[in-house]
Design a protein around this nucleic acid. Structure first.
Lengths: 209, 209
DNA sequence: CCTACCGATCGGTAGG
DNA sequence: CCTACCGATCGGTAGG
């Protein structure tokens, strides 16, 4: 979506190249979701796409650049599927609920075959250092920040109790969303999604009393 | 601990060999905790230990066997640090609280440099197939089962309300423990541990009213 | 986008 | 536990 847009407006890259570029990133996201960002190798990706390794280097100068662009593309997909639709709900606890519900549905629908892309990515590189680690941290920080800001707005609107600790609330909502994702993928058991939904709804009810 | 015991009682393996075997698994656990079970390579491990690659093959027939024994050793360490000490607390909600508290402390103390070994492992191999995936699933299942059983006992003793859904309770406790681990390592922020402790205590209070 | 190639590292083996 | 080696794959380059 981003890349087709770029291709139409910026003639730096020909339409074919842009289409290939997008197809590469789609395949890269799928591979990284299942095998990890470190398991995403140039050879495997080239095989998957039916092109040569050096063909990939026409699009990416290095593996690191491929990894970073893959992470960015995953972030844009996440925004499109989870964040943007929630913005249709007016500010307040309803928007917070929308964010949580859209996240759980995004996991349940297996937008990425390995579950939430950023959950997998962060767990993989949490104890490492470098640009990939930093991008993972930034992604989670941004998501947590959005949840936090949405909750603060809801509190200012009087839809969340004055005595509620918003940071603590977000920690708990985040924990329940992540666990629903994690256990759903690990056990291949949709019941985990239901438990997550139930817990989230209970916490939101309590906060919004 | 297991291996020194085996060495004393089973003369199949000489004391030196047993000591080396244990040292190999210690290093393997550390490497796997930071780089993942797939990032645990024979060459890296041999370097770390100052021996040759073929030297490792005197102890393990294949990489898969090394991986499986590393996972088993991590499980034994987890039992020693988290599960066994909790059994000193009598059955009931106190034991459930002990299990949670010992887990959080195990994370906080960085027994493994990459956080909880099984959390990292499971997230890494959740979307894959094979014996390593199965061992990861079994580890988490066993841990969840222990929590569940402990909670059921507490309910039978009347220390958890009759109207409490025990499975839901365990899902939520698990989520909070895992998130404390995950965010603590990712952000290197001990505040995440405090949030986890606070949320766990609140949930236990509510369940035990 | 291709073929052809590079040095490094992978898991693993032969033989001691 | 060692040296010496195997074929496969890694990220990457030269040259087109």
């Amino acid at each position: 979506m981003l890349y087709s847009g770029v291709a139409k407006q910026a003639p730096v890259r020909r339409a074919d190249g842009a289409r290939t570029h997008g197809a590469i990133l789609d395949a890269a996201m799928r591979l990284a979701s299942v095998h990890g960002i470190n398991g995403l190798t140039i050879g495997r990706l080239a095989d998957e796409l039916g092109i040569s390794k050096s063909g990939l280097y026409a699009h990416f100068d290095s593996k690191l650049e491929l990894q970073m662009q893959t992470i960015q593309a995953a972030g844009e997909l996440f925004d499109r599927v989870v964040v943007d639709p929630a913005m249709a709900t007016p500010p307040g606890i309803g928007r917070l609920r929308s964010l949580c519900e859209l996240y759980v549905t995004y996991v349940e629908r297996k937008v990425f075959p390995g579950g939430c892309f950023f959950a997998s990515l962060s767990a993989e590189v949490d104890a490492q250092t470098g640009p990939v680690h930093d991008a993972a941290v930034d992604g989670i920080r941004e998501w947590l920040g959005l949840l936090q800001q949405t909750a603060v707005e809801a509190k200012e609107l009087g839809e969340i109790g004055r005595n509620v600790d918003v940071e603590q609330l977000i920690f708990e909502l985040f924990a329940l969303m992540e666990s629903a994702n994690y256990l759903y993928v690990l056990f291949d058991d949709v019941e985990q999604i239901s438990k997550g939904r139930a817990a989230i709804e209970r916490i939101l009810q309590t906060a919004g009393n």
